[in-house]
C-alpha cells in the first residue's frame, strides 16, 4: 500500500489551482473533467512523481463548518516541507500571500502558517540545521 494522493477541500477549484501553482509553485498533474467538478491534482515541482494533492470541491455540507472552525483557531490541516521558512515567507509575502503566523522557531523546528485563499491554512516547516529528529 502506498500513499499516492491526499485531498484538500477547496472553496473554488480554479482559484485553488491558481494559488497552488502560481504562488506555492506546485505543478498541475491531472485535470479531468468529471462533468462539473474536476479531478484536479498538483504535485511538487521537486517531486513530479511524488504524492499528488487532490484539490477537492468542498460541496459536502459538513466541510464548510469544519474548515471554518479550524481556520478561526489558526489550525493548519496540511503542512509542506521547505528548505527555509524565512525565505519562503519573504517570497510568498511579496506575492501577496497572507500569513496568520510569521516564521517562528520553536525548539528544533521553524514554522509559519499561511492562508491558501480557498478555505485552508497551510503550515510551512523546516527543521533547523543540526537538530536531531
Amino acid at each position: 500500500m502506498k500513499i499516492n494522493w491526499t485531498s484538500i477541500f477547496v472553496t473554488d477549484q480554479q482559484k485553488a489551482l491558481d494559488f497552488y501553482t502560481d504562488k506555492l509553485g506546485f505543478v498541475l498533474k491531472h485535470d479531468i473533467d468529471m462533468g462539473g467538478p474536476r479531478w484536479l491534482t498538483v504535485v511538487s515541482s521537486e517531486e513530479p512523481d511524488g504524492v499528488e494533492i487532490v484539490l477537492e470541491p468542498n460541496s459536502h455540507p459538513a466541510v464548510v463548518p469544519f474548515t471554518e472552525a479550524l481556520v478561526a483557531d489558526g489550525i493548519p490541516m496540511n503542512q509542506f516541507a521547505v528548505d527555509d521558512v524565512e525565505a519562503e515567507y519573504e517570497r510568498l509575502s511579496s506575492l501577496g500571500v497572507t500569513f496568520t503566523q510569521e516564521p517562528t522557531t520553536m525548539g528544533p523546528i521553524t514554522t509559519a502558517v499561511l492562508d491558501d485563499t480557498v478555505g485552508n491554512l497551510i503550515q510551512l516547516v523546516h527543521q533547523d540545521e543540526g537538530a536531531q529528529g
Partner: peptide, 17 residues
C-alpha cells in the same frame, strides 16, 4: 514575545517552548 497569535500558535509555543 509575539503579539497577535492564533489559538494554534499559542498551543504550539506552549508545547515546543
Amino acid at each position: 514575545e509575539q503579539n497577535d497569535q492564533t489559538l494554534f500558535e499559542i498551543c504550539a509555543r506552549l508545547t515546543n517552548n
